[in-house]
Computed example of a mutant assay.
Amino acid sequence: METEKALQLLGLIRRASQLVTGENMVLKAIRNQSVTLVLLANDAGPTSAKKIRDKANFYNIAIISAFNKAELSNATGLERTVLAVKNPGFSKKLLELTKTEGA
């Protein structure tokens, strides 16, 4: 997994205004199917994590849980537990960079 490149790309995605942040906004974007990828902090609360996972799975949207809250916050400059990417190209690249063996 190329963590550093993925986090740098996340910062670029934010600067390109292709990021939805915050639990409620992400849930709304998933329901509208206006996002193609969800990034969920691996140290997110169990209730929030379940809500996001269930909604993303229902709408068949990929989830990455490779980062913790601090890493996501440092990469984007925002303290968030959950983020979503609007642009399919950015989503594809993030999935490639975070792909682990056997996944």
Results as ranks from 00 to 15, higher is better:
M1S: 15
M1H: 14
E2C: 00
E2I: 05
T3D: 04
T3H: 13
E4G: 00
A6W: 07
A6G: 01
L7K: 06
Q8A: 12
L9R: 12
L9M: 07
G11H: 03
L12H: 14
I13L: 13
R14E: 01
A16P: 00
V20Q: 06
V20P: 01
V20S: 10
G22C: 09
G22S: 03
N24L: 10
M25V: 00
M25S: 15
M25D: 12
V26W: 00
K28L: 08
A29S: 08
A29C: 07
I30H: 04
R31G: 02
N32L: 13
Q33R: 09
Q33N: 06
S34M: 11
T36Q: 15
L37W: 11
L39R: 04
L39A: 04
L39N: 13
L40D: 05
L40M: 03
A41F: 05
A41C: 06
A41H: 03
N42E: 14
D43N: 12
G45L: 13
G45E: 11
P46K: 13
T47F: 14
S48C: 00
S48G: 13
A49N: 02
A49T: 11
A49Q: 07
K50V: 00
K50A: 15
I52T: 08
I52L: 10
R53M: 14
K55I: 06
A56R: 07
N57I: 00
N57C: 01
N57P: 01
F58K: 10
N60M: 03
N60P: 00
A62Q: 09
I63L: 01
I63A: 02
I64M: 03
I64P: 12
S65G: 01
A66Q: 01
A66T: 05
A66C: 05
F67L: 05
K69S: 15
K69L: 15
K69C: 02
E71C: 04
L72Q: 08
L72M: 07
L72V: 04
N74G: 10
A75M: 06
T76E: 02
G77K: 07
G77M: 07
G77W: 09
L78R: 13
L78V: 05
E79L: 14
E79Y: 12
E79F: 14
E79V: 13
T81A: 06
V82D: 09
L83N: 08
A84F: 01
N87S: 11
N87F: 06
F90C: 11
S91C: 09
S91G: 15
K93N: 09
K93Y: 10
L95R: 10
E96R: 12
E96I: 10
T98S: 11
T98G: 01
T98F: 13
T98I: 09
T100L: 12
T100E: 10
T100Y: 08
E101V: 15
G102Y: 14
A103H: 14
